[in-house]
Design a protein around this nucleic acid. Structure first.
Length: 399
DNA sequence: GGGAGACCTAGTAA
DNA sequence: ATTACTAGGTCTC
């Protein structure tokens, strides 16, 4: 079973009969989503639970070789693992999503390669360049992982099972808004919210039953009110988004340029800058820095990473709370262990903690469960022991 | 500086 | 059927 399932409620109603595999943008598609959070009809639910086989036309896609090994890019460990909430699983080992104005599908091919396909485009060359950029192709996963493996036995072991977990290079605005949505939230709802925002952008087409949109411009975002976002189920994050958009717009020289300039800043500068935006704390800032600002040693410290850190890196901090200061100590510990690409190492370690990956890891590497299981085993053992004791005592008494 | 609550919501465990 | 808690945190005291 694939791990995070596509969120169905995001799909617009459609007829149960097989839709065309991919639908180019037409005016009728421009009708915007209504509320994101609305009850799904039972009919639609069925579609979700029994996804129809991909339309035969999908097989007709002519994949162009990316010429990249699985060890450099394995899609299921790169797209549905919390870096982006904009891509959809549109087939076996196949993912589709927007890259700027382009709509791209990627598929793991036979023969250890990944294929790509740019939908509805007449500037394939531009799309390809943007794709390479988005995939961070300038960085060799094998090269940087070999360093991690050499210095960390546990990483080496995890890496055998989780090859090809690559860090993407997303658009900064897109990344920022997504991670503001992610605070104190779960993947399913984050995806719904991101989808709502995205639907304000230019429609790019439909693939595998999913609508895709270019991410809305800053101006377009500014036209969305806090009330509308609350209505759509954003909760208190509605205020953050409106506030952040306003803050960006007020930057002299432009918000987009300001964000882009953080790519040339050092990590601390980027984090400090991002943290001035409402709804952006240490975690969100680090995510944006790592996933969109070329800050390869940014460490998003969430509860999972915190667990890893107190288990392997700085056990002396176990039991304390995750304050900003502790947060940066954790980040420092990762950087001193893994070096300038520490964020890429953290990504693999984080993925290894995801429940969805447990099935592909040997149980000896399940940390989170391991602990509770051991505890459970001890408890069971103790109970059996006491039973044993009682029994033997009883025997003694009886005799 | 660190600690405690509140903050929206949906889903699930008691 | 209610209640409590949690989920890739942040803000305010």
């Amino acid at each position: 079973m694939q791990s995070p399932r596509p969120i169905l409620s995001m799909k617009r109603p459609k007829t149960p009969s097989a839709p065309p595999p991919s639908t180019p943008p037409t005016p009728q598609h421009r009708q915007s989503f209504t509320k994101l959070i609305n009850p799904i009809s039972s009919k639609r639910r069925n579609i979700l639970q029994n996804p129809q086989p991909l339309p035969s036309a999908a097989a007709a896609i002519e994949w162009k070789p990316l010429k990249i090994n699985k060890s450099e890019l394995y899609l299921p460990l790169t797209f549905p693992t919390g870096q982006t909430f904009r891509w959809r699983n549109t087939g076996p080992l196949q993912y589709t999503g927007p890259i700027g104005p382009h709509l791209v599908s990627l598929k793991q091919l036979e023969g250890d390669d990944v294929g790509y396909f740019c939908h509805f485009t007449d500037s394939d060359e531009t799309a390809r360049i943007n794709l390479f950029d988005f995939l961070n192709m300038g960085i060799s996963l094998n090269e940087i992982w070999s360093v991690f493996k050499a210095s960390d036995e546990r990483f080496a072991e995890l890496a055998m099972y989780l090859e090809g977990a690559r860090v993407l290079r997303q658009d900064p605005l897109e990344c920022l808004i997504q991670f503001i949505c992610s605070s104190n939230n779960n993947i399913q709802r984050i995806t719904k919210m991101v989808d709502f925002i995205s639907s304000k952008g230019k429609f790019l087409g439909n693939v595998g039953g999913f609508d895709f949109f270019e991410f809305p411009t800053l101006d377009k975002l500014a036209s969305v009110s806090e009330a509308e976002l609350r209505e759509a189920g954003f909760g208190y994050r509605a205020k953050y988004i409106v506030g952040t958009v306003a803050a960006l717009q007020s930057k002299p020289g432009g918000g987009m340029e300001w964000l882009a300039s953080l790519r040339k800043s050092d990590l601390q500068g980027a984090i400090t800058g991002l943290s001035t935006l409402p709804g952006v704390g240490p975690k969100v800032a680090a995510c944006v820095a790592l996933f969109s600002l070329d800050q390869h040693h940014a460490i998003p410290v969430d509860t999972h990473v915190w667990q890893i850190a107190t288990r392997y890196l700085i056990p002396e901090l176990a039991g304390t709370t995750l304050t900003p200061r502790v947060c940066s100590r954790v980040a420092d510990a990762f950087v001193s262990k893994y070096g300038k690409y520490a964020g890429w190492a953290q990504t693999l370690l984080f993925i290894s903690e995801l429940p969805s990956q447990k099935s592909i890891l040997p149980s000896s590497l399940w940390n989170t469960v391991e602990k509770s299981e051991i505890k459970l085993q001890i408890e069971v053992h103790e109970i059996q022991e006491t039973k044993e004791n009682r029994r033997s005592k009883k025997k003694k008494n009886d005799s």
